[in-house]
């Protein structure tokens, strides 16, 4: 027999899964709307939201302490770094 807390957990997982499916469909539909450069931005935004959902619920980050949050967030800073440093070259070439 399932106890109440694990039933609740299952419900959360299924809801998150459905949300991911909906977001996937939205990505697909948006690609038919012509927004120019904004198409990429929108696709990236939706993808980031999906990644966030996975990290928060499937990877349990929501229930973890501050140390694990730090370990999850700090690498994003390094990602910004590699993109920023490379763009400092590519965007500013003569």
């Amino acid at each position: 027999m399932l106890n109440t807390s694990s039933t609740k957990a299952y419900r959360t997982y299924i809801l998150v899964w459905l949300a991911l499916l909906v977001l996937t469909v939205v990505t697909w539909l948006v690609s038919y709307v012509h927004l120019g450069m904004l198409n990429v931005t929108v696709a990236m935004l939706i993808a980031s939201m999906k990644a966030l959902l996975v990290a928060l619920f499937f990877m349990h980050l929501r229930y973890e302490n501050r140390l694990l949050w730090a370990f999850a967030i700090i690498p994003l800073g390094f990602l910004t770094l590699i993109i920023g440093g490379t763009l400092a070259d590519v965007l500013l070439r003569d």
């Binding site: 440093g85 400092a88 070259d89 590519v90 500013l92 003569d94």
Partner: peptide
């Protein structure tokens, strides 16, 4: 150590501004 990688590329044709920053 993560902020300085461009110093290997000064003469590779990287932008001058990036060179100065690195």
């Amino acid at each position: 150590g993560f902020l300085v990688w461009g110093h290997h590329m000064f003469v590779s044709g990287m932008s001058d501004v990036a060179g100065i920053i690195f």
